[in-house]
């Protein structure tokens, strides 16, 4: 790890101000990606702005049709939240499948979403549930948030403060884990929201996306029969030693089918 300065702001505004004053700053959420990267000397920010003591970034609140989850809320807290388990059990279940216990106790939803790791779990829920990402500057629709591999709609210095998840009529998440890392080779959330199907996919492509072909099929009826024969084009899908693009495309269909069965 290289030397860096550590900042611990008390407010979002203060954090953003520090960010704009530093040469090569980085926000620190749970640190589950950034810290290992720094330890491997692959990242070398001059300043770490630790969001852990910023007021009001943590917590889960149900309001009417939505659940609001503060950006600094840990995965373990989402997994164990009575409100989440009651309103969107699929989201609690997804959180329970992230990493291991240590990761879940440190990692935050904001950090995960802001990183846009192609194999992270939360992004599948953000797009499948049509979440809204709140930042210190604006609100970003979940559909517009993930842009590419480790790229989001966030501008430099912008901080996620909370994410609103609309409560679906029903939803389920199924993940095919990479055997070694247990990250998603493919993760699929199938949801029914306002009478319509939404299918969010993580792991398969450079970033999370909605599988429109599957949604159209399910809009004809939430029935496994409708998924049969739906082509998932693998163009642009990830290929690595654990799974080819072709296999990932196949798994999108399989995981969607399993999620559907679990609805």
């Amino acid at each position: 790890m290289y030397r860096f300065r550590h900042h611990r702001p008390a407010t979002v505004d203060e954090a953003a101000r520090i960010f704009s004053d530093c040469e090569d700053p980085a926000y620190l959420g749970g640190g589950m990606t950034l810290i290992p990267t720094m330890k491997q000397r692959l990242a070398a920010p001059t300043d770490l702005i630790d969001l852990g003591r910023v007021d009001g970034l943590s917590g889960i609140r149900v309001s009417g049709e939505e659940i609001r989850i503060g950006a600094f809320t840990r995965h373990a807290d989402v997994a164990a939240s009575r409100e989440v388990i009651h309103a969107i059990p699929a989201l609690a279940s997804l959180a329970r499948q992230i990493g291991d216990m240590q990761v879940r106790n440190r990692g935050t939803i904001g950090g995960s979403v802001a990183n846009s790791d192609p194999a992270a779990d939360y992004p599948a829920a953000v797009v499948a549930l049509g979440a809204t990402v709140h930042t210190n500057r604006r609100r970003i629709a979940g559909d517009d948030f993930f842009k590419d591999l480790f790229e989001t709609a966030l501008e430099p210095g912008e901080i996620i403060t909370a994410i609103d998840f609309p409560i679906p009529a029903r939803a389920a998440y199924r993940k095919f884990p990479q055997p070694a890392s247990r990250y998603a080779i493919v993760g699929v959330m199938v949801a029914e929201l306002g009478g319509k199907a939404r299918v969010g996919v993580t792991g398969a492509g450079p970033c999370a996306f909605r599988a429109t072909a599957l949604e159209e099929a399910l809009n004809r009826g939430f029935d496994a029969a409708h998924l049969e024969g739906v082509e998932i084009p693998d163009a642009g899908f990830n290929t690595d030693m654990h799974a080819s693009a072709e296999y990932r495309a196949h798994l999108v269909g399989v995981m969607a089918g399993q999620a559907l069965a679990a609805l």
Partner: peptide, 28 residues
């Protein structure tokens, strides 16, 4: 079922971390 040490054609070790080299775990 899980493990293989793999190099690419240039001799770089592709399975150089626990994220890619899959050791068995209890649930396997």
């Amino acid at each position: 079922l899980l493990e293989v040490g793999r190099y690419d054609a240039t001799g770089q070790l592709l399975t150089g971390t626990m994220m890619d080299y899959c050791l068995p775990r209890a649930d396997d």
